[in-house]
């Protein structure tokens, strides 16, 4: 049962990723990324990371993906002809395709080779059926307090910086 769920969700994620790679329309790619994020979130839950699964859905699907779709809509190509499928279309020249295939397949082969020759020996047993929320909260407030605070500062800086950058600085005088 667990194996079936694992294979189903990883298949969803991988197929969605490949669909983004091969689709020409960027809006379709963004919605396929939604599926890929959901699949990865389900994999988190299957690996016993319930809190991370929920935050994956809330941060990525609820925040980042909406932001990306807004970005796609705000940067429409100014194509004036009436064909509605021409917007958001990404034309890929053949040299880019060759470079993408070489980079992707090469990186994949190297990673798979490393994984298969790694021969991991795990020190402990896999943890099952225990909520991780208490551990994550205690760790964040004790041994990981400094990164936690730095994260807060980073988010504040990113918020202010993004708002300042995106501000419309040339009003029609």
């Amino acid at each position: 049962m667990e194996a079936a769920a694992f294979y189903a969700f990883s298949l969803i994620a991988i197929l969605a990723a490949l669909f983004i790679l091969f689709s020409k329309n960027l809006i379709y790619g963004a919605f396929a990324l939604f599926l890929a994020f959901l699949g990865v979130g389900a994999l988190f839950v299957l690996a016993g990371a319930d809190f991370l699964g929920v935050s994956q859905i809330m941060i990525y699907v609820g925040g980042i993906l909406v932001l990306l779709i807004f970005g796609i809509m705000l940067t429409q190509k100014a194509v004036k002809n009436s064909d509605p499928t021409r917007h958001n279309r990404v034309e890929v020249p053949i040299s880019r395709k060759v470079a993408g295939v070489i980079a992707g397949v090469g990186c994949g082969l190297v990673l798979l080779r490393i994984i298969f020759s790694a021969n991991f020996r795990m020190a402990g047993e896999a943890v099952e059926n225990r909520s991780t929320i208490k551990t994550i909260g205690v760790e964040l407030m004790t041994s990981h307090l400094l990164p936690f605070e730095i994260t807060a500062i980073l988010l504040l800086v990113a918020l202010v910086g993004a708002a300042y950058l995106a501000m419309n600085r040339n009003p029609a005088k």
């Binding site: 990883s10 994620a13 991988i14 990723a17 490949l18 983004i20 790679l21 960027l26 790619g29 963004a30 890929a36 990865v40 994999l43 990306l68 970005g71 796609i72 940067t75 990404v90 034309e91 890929v92 020249p93 880019r96 395709k97 470079a99 993408g100 295939v101 980079a103 992707g104 397949v105 990186c107 994949g108 990673l111 798979l112 994984i115």
Partner: peptide
């Protein structure tokens, strides 16, 4: 699964001629 997703992401980042 992580390796395949990473390679697909790398391919997307190289191939797409669009910032987003």
């Amino acid at each position: 699964v992580g390796a395949i997703l990473f390679s697909a992401g790398l391919g997307i980042a190289v191939t797409k001629r669009h910032f987003i």
